[in-house]
Design a protein around this nucleic acid. Sequence first.
DNA 1: TGACTATTATGACGCCCGTCATGGAACGTG
DNA 2: CACGTTCCATGACGGGCGTCATAATAGTCA
Lengths: 196, 196
Amino acid sequence: MAVSERGPRERMVFSAAQLMRRGGVAAAGMRDVAVRAEAPRGSLQHYFPGGKDQLVAEAVGWAGRYASRRVARFVAALPEPVPSALFAAMVEQWTVEYGAEGFAAGCPVAAATVDHADSTASTREAASDAFGAWTRAVGEALVGMGVPQERSRPLSTLMISTLEGAILLARAERDTRALTTAAAELGPLLDAAVRA
Amino acid sequence: MAVSERGPRERMVFSAAQLMRRGGVAAAGMRDVAVRAEAPRGSLQHYFPGGKDQLVAEAVGWAGRYASRRVARFVAALPEPVPSALFAAMVEQWTVEYGAEGFAAGCPVAAATVDHADSTASTREAASDAFGAWTRAVGEALVGMGVPQERSRPLSTLMISTLEGAILLARAERDTRALTTAAAELGPLLDAAVRA
DNA sequence: TGACTATTATGACGCCCGTCATGGAACGTG
DNA sequence: CACGTTCCATGACGGGCGTCATAATAGTCA
């Protein structure tokens, strides 16, 4: 995830998301965002006239789109297109990161929800949209694997709930145990929904 | 949850946890904590010489003990002592709160993890201990219901992961859907582990 | 009573934050 | 060239934060 790609605007959104991942919304200071994005500080008020709220909302939206796109790529790369394998891939993304870079960062959407769901409407709506898009992407993938339409939404919601919670536990415990447990325990349940 | 119970020290810890539940660690200002606890501001530096870090850590510890105690009470109140009923009770605590008071607050341990897991060691350790105590309490309850010892830890971890994630989704979406889905989908899986 | 500790009170300090005001540079287009 | 739009630069402002210094009060026991 290099910072040097795309225009300065997108770099700032990306950097905001990265900082939120590590220390929540409060840790994503406007000055820090500009520095990390190698963007001029003056650009913030130009590209984000709505201030920090807008920046946070866009960072959350970016994260939602990123997660959704990831799902499609996971599906395409699966040796066997079964739900448990998709969930395992989603979990593996985190175990790999935590193994390689430590437990510094979590999900930016979760951070935005925890910090601003009650105080800032735009942030909460962005988080809702992000989770919605992600859930939809997973649900469509499940349908493509033979899961009945009406089962796809509850199961995709369950997958994302469990993954988010396991990320939380993993960070607190500095251990990927919760993540691997989630994948192992939920796998059979997910596969049992195919063609049911 | 009245604020007027116990001594001023415990009231401050409690108030800190409540504020963290709503807007994260940053929203739990020291001055606010004192006001909400109806405690003198000067008491903060007296009872918590370790500053805010100590206060946050104790709030997280308080939450962990609270959740653990709750598990025992849930088990005692169950009409039928099966794992799915325990999980349903844990979930119901949140659906009831969200139905009655709105989606303002989440789990304080989650908030502490998201905001300070990477920056403050004492907070992260407190969160790890809180999740550990909670997981242990749930695991012991599962064993008491006939779940084999070696299955109790993964299953209790799964329950807490899924619950925490569903709380997150529920707050973002302002909808208890994720919570009820979690209970409905995980129930059969949990009960299948009894005497297995 | 006196002395010692526990608790409370209050104001100030320094820091960082988001925001704003103002102006300069870059640059395509008429 | 002129000119307007887009983009960047910089410093200041006001406010909130955690922390600290200092002192007054309350409670307790010799």
